[in-house]
Computed example of a mutant assay.
Amino acid sequence: MKSHLDFIPQKYTQKLVEKGKFQWSAPSNIALVKYWGKKENQIPANPSISFTLNNCKTTTTLEFEPKGFTSENFSFDLFLDGIPKEDFKPKMQKFFERIAVYLPFLKDFHFTIFTQNTFPHSSGIASSASGMAAMAVNLMSIEKLFNPAMSDDYFWQKASFLARLGSGSACRSVKGSVVVWGENSSIVDSSDLFGVAFTEKIHKNFQCFQDTILLVDKGEKVVSSTVGHELMHNHPFAVQRFEQAHKNLAQMKQILIDGNLEQFVALVESEALTLHAMMMTSMPYFILMKPNTLEIINKIWKFRNETNIQVCFTLDAGANVHVLYPEEVKNEVLQFIKNELIDYCQNQQYICDEIGNGAQKII
């Protein structure tokens, strides 16, 4: 079993690396079995499984040049959509502090980070997963300059490991199309330290799965996910929830192999509501769903009952609704969304996405 010590490099074969740049894109992801609650060092309290998305992604260009002097400080500038973002720098500083032991070259370079998202800023889609995943693969590209013999397996595994230290769910955005994060007895080589690609053959029902994201509320959440995770430490139902997640992940594995859409719908919706039930029963308690979230859920249930089309919803830690459905019913579901659901979205905004393949190198 892997240890975090496996990701501390012993020595580099290449001593001198000049200035350069890399550019990668990395997508967001949507969990089917949710992770809620974490231990020290970004270790999940329970395992999770997610679809990697395709269109909602972050593209990050990382320019680097040697400082030319020894320094104990990190040196970087950060731009979002070409505009300096000083308020993003503390999070990047914290990320660098966490990963410095695993990337010993970090303090030797000045970095210029240019990042942009394909989805609107503050659209309520978590950009931390895609953003930290994109940053991690860029940094691994630099480390590969120091160690050209690095294997692809090590590259991807360590990239996921580093991404996790920036934002837990980011470790599920490095590879695709289905990723498991967290030790679970039903998944070979599963780990708390990084995400692993689902190795079983996924049934054709799920291979081109669609995710239309309904933007119910684009405002800042009243409770951050970080605070929400912390509230699981003394939660009265935490033990039962963690046991449930392990069982649900094993069940989801079989569903993805067998292609049973009815079971998929039931489990995914149950997981989404369980996530929000944990929020509503923590102390202090909170509700992130909005009235329009509930309106959409009820409309989806009614549509499914009337048409027998296997469309379902899931939720992240927020008000927005991810509408999940097979590609073969795309036309019917999109018509339903346009006819009945967009009025519940802020400014009638929604984003069409689908299952994807993870981070992609551009430069």
Rank of each mutant, 00 (worst) to 15 (best):
D87V: 10
P90T: 01
P90H: 05
P90S: 04
K91I: 03
M92D: 00
F95L: 05
F95T: 09
R98F: 09
R98I: 01
A100D: 15
V101D: 11
Y102T: 08
L103H: 02
P104A: 11
P104W: 06
L106A: 12
L106M: 13
L106H: 10
L106S: 12
D108P: 07
T112P: 02
T112C: 10
I113S: 10
F114N: 14
F114I: 00
T115N: 14
T115P: 02
Q116E: 15
Q116L: 05
Q116T: 12
F119M: 14
F119N: 06
H121V: 15
H121D: 01
H121C: 08
S122W: 08
S122G: 13
S122N: 15
S123F: 12
G124T: 11
G124P: 13
G124W: 11
I125A: 00
I125R: 01
I125Y: 05
S127I: 07
S128E: 05
S128R: 03
S130E: 02
S130Q: 02
A133D: 00
M135H: 01
M135V: 06
A136C: 05
A136M: 04
N138I: 10
N138L: 12
S141L: 02
S141W: 01
I142Y: 11
E143N: 08
E143G: 11
E143F: 08
E143A: 09
K144V: 03
K144C: 03
F146Y: 15
N147Q: 15
N147M: 10
M150P: 09
D152L: 12
D153C: 04
Y154N: 08
F155Q: 04
W156Y: 15
Q157L: 09
K158H: 09
A159E: 07
S160R: 09
S160I: 03
F161M: 08
